[in-house]
Amino acid sequence: MAPARPSQDRPWHAAAPAPLVLISGPEQLLASRSVERIAQALRRGGATVATTTLDAGTYTRGALVAAASPSLFDDPGLVIVEGAERMNDEFLADGLAYAQAPDPAVTVVIRHGGGVRGKKLLDTLKKADVPVYACPAIKKDSEVVEFAMGEFARASRPIAARAVRALVDAVGSDVAEVAAACRQLMDDVDGSLTEEHVSRYYGTRVNATGFAVADAAIAGRTGEALALVRHAVATGTDPVPLVAALASKLRTLAKVGAARGRRLDPVKDLGMAPWQVDRAKKDLRMWDADRLASAIEAVATADAEIKGASRSPHFALERAVRIVADLARA
């Protein structure tokens, strides 16, 4: 039996010029960066790049061939086709025709945000071994942390895992904001980056985050956890993300604990980040299965109360934090 063919999809940060390039996926920031990397590669050596942008949704027949015509001055050409996920029939027809014989002197980048529209063209491009650069959605907390880690790794800047965690806690889950915060931190600090650097620049935003509350509660530091909760609420933080962070930490403990009992590898079998697993193993030294179940139940109750079952969501949050911290010390 012939070996399975590896996926054609390449990481967004590896994007490079080619006669035809497909950038696929819904994450706008990553797609924009992929296009910019290709443009920068074409501009190396001081070359002037003749750039044309087309919209596949409002495309007019013949525009692709016209845009891809080589420059009279031998400048490298770049054609960017946006919105291929909503392409009209005219672009589909021209795209299929162009894919049969792309001009080697021009780089045509097709940006497809996802979905089934234009599947015939996508399949044709992939069968022709056109390079595909993946820009997957970054939504989960673990994905945001992984993205941030990648920002520092690609810049060859060492940073502690806890510092990345603190930065994401401070900035939030918006990928563009996280990217900007990573860049700012690297510009402002020389050498290795630590949690202290993050705290210095994002101070109160870090100290009052949901994961800081969760860390304190799970470690049994009742006074610190309650102080953080009260500070967060006083500065306008909604209780929902605070209780969500506590629930997330407890779920991580439960997953790692269950994996250990079933002889599973949380990294390989559950897709968890190594630093998450290491941290959970340390936290689990204070917990057993019964107390962990009680903590999860208490947080679930608080979550329901905060989302409408109680007239005092702040009290419900504080009670849950106190219960978790007390269980950690039981």
Rank of each mutant, 00 (worst) to 15 (best):
L167M: 11
P266S: 04
V198A: 03
I323P: 03
I138F: 07
A4T: 12
L96V: 01
V198R: 09
G114C: 06
I38T: 02
A244T: 12
V299R: 09
L185M: 09
K255T: 14
T204S: 15
L29R: 10
A68R: 03
S310M: 04
P241N: 05
G114W: 00
E224M: 04
A148M: 03
V171F: 01
A280N: 07
R5E: 02
A134G: 12
V233F: 05
S32H: 09
K139D: 11
R33Q: 14
G223A: 15
T51N: 06
A170F: 01
F73D: 04
K282I: 09
W12R: 03
A50E: 15
E82V: 00
V81N: 03
A101Y: 05
S142C: 08
K120N: 02
R230H: 13
W12M: 05
A128N: 15
H231G: 10
R319C: 07
D290M: 07
A309V: 04
V65R: 11
R260G: 15
S173A: 13
L121N: 08
A304R: 15
P241G: 06
A18T: 08
D141K: 11
G271R: 00
P3Y: 12
M149K: 12
L78Y: 09
A295H: 09
A258Y: 12
A14N: 10
F91S: 01
R117A: 04
R157T: 10
D290L: 09
Y59A: 06
A181N: 08
M87Y: 03
P266I: 02
K268F: 08
S156R: 14
R111Y: 00
K119Q: 14
K127A: 15
M272Y: 07
R183H: 12
A105D: 14
V106E: 02
A309H: 14
M1S: 14
P102R: 11
A84C: 12
V132W: 02
L125P: 04
P131T: 00
A214N: 02
G46W: 13
P102E: 05
A298R: 09
P239Y: 04
P17E: 11
S142H: 11
G95C: 11
P266T: 01
P19L: 06
A31E: 05
H112I: 10
L327G: 01
A15F: 14
I296S: 13
A15I: 00
I80L: 14
Y59H: 03
M87H: 04
G223N: 14
G77V: 11
A67I: 05
A50D: 15
V229C: 15
L246E: 08
G191T: 07
D174Y: 02
